[in-house]
Write a protein that binds this DNA or RNA. Sequence first.
DNA 1: ATTTTTTCTTGATATAGATCAAGAGAAATA
DNA 2: TATTTCTCTTGATCTATATCAAGAAAAAAT
Lengths: 193, 193
Amino acid sequence: MYEILIENIFKKIVLNNDEQQLLKTFFIPKKLRKKQCLLQEGDVSKYLAFVEKGILRSYTVDEKGGEHIAEFAFEGWWIGDQFSFLTGEPSTYNIDALEDCELLLLTKQAEEQMLEKIPKMERFFRLLLQNHLIATQGRLVSSLSNSAEEKYKQLVNACPTIPQRVPQHMLASFLGITPETLSRLRKQISQRK
Amino acid sequence: MYEILIENIFKKIVLNNDEQQLLKTFFIPKKLRKKQCLLQEGDVSKYLAFVEKGILRSYTVDEKGGEHIAEFAFEGWWIGDQFSFLTGEPSTYNIDALEDCELLLLTKQAEEQMLEKIPKMERFFRLLLQNHLIATQGRLVSSLSNSAEEKYKQLVNACPTIPQRVPQHMLASFLGITPETLSRLRKQISQRK
DNA sequence: ATTTTTTCTTGATATAGATCAAGAGAAATA
DNA sequence: TATTTCTCTTGATCTATATCAAGAAAAAAT
């Protein structure tokens, strides 16, 4: 059950056996069925979630009801509203499951205890945040400088399986374009080949 | 000279006097004159910089020569290419000074030594990255969901002094719009009042 | 003080992508 | 298997923003 988590952590730091066993005690396993939600706008984000299985998305809803996907989280990724989790302020994000999911949840309290008992985890989370920041900055620059087509190509390039696992209109939302535009743009790409 | 740095660090963690003195030894003071650069695209990012005075920008240049500003860094902020600094890969960013600057530079080696000697700094950088990530995610969502005018208003709201300190065409680049559009949009806003 | 460079504005026109509308497949649910 | 819901496509039209061009104002350099 915790294999993927341990594996994920071992990519950045090393834990001895005692630490590994201790680590497990801080997480709460949770299953989420497709369409169920982990966080609703207006609630405080109580958990950081590690994804063992499935896909989730975090998104905001604008005044006109339009959804804007901030992130997807696949197996081996983490998801949560960092801001709300950190500050205890209500979240502006929604997080829900695109497939049946298996998660490992970490509460604020559990996180604090974990960092106290296993100080090495401080480093793990630092490196995790660093990678997350690098990816987010890259996406931001891309969103400011590339055309819709370029952004789509980059996405598929970075994550070739994503079109099979995520509905197209959600990819459009993630890229900041309309489903119609993405549909037309895909047609053009395929016709050019 | 290190007052602003110490103050910045104390917002997140506490250091005793010995630690404070030791901390200073890891940084290299550096002055940068307006228009001089700290990092050029293609070079490896050797430093993370803490800004004591002045403003810097990091930006990418596209195939057509267009500049896209990823970030500004004011007094009390940190700047650098996290990716290149972390991996040793050549950077895709340029960083230069918009005003005469005073910086405190941290090399990779100094960072490692610092984390070894003052493990609390691991937590400091984690929290720093967390805040940075929150801000970047917010900007990303805003860039995907808001109009040019909304983005400009949000920027000025978040940082009211920025129009006085940064040329307008650079604000446009930061927002991902053209200088002409920003000029017209500002005119409209002022006419409506 | 003059020249050069940078920055900002304004107009005319073009265009990428949005919006509105409708229908066709697919997939989930009953 | 029927039926409801979700997903994708295609067409017609609209609009926010880009592009091109030129000049004015401001700042920096000589």
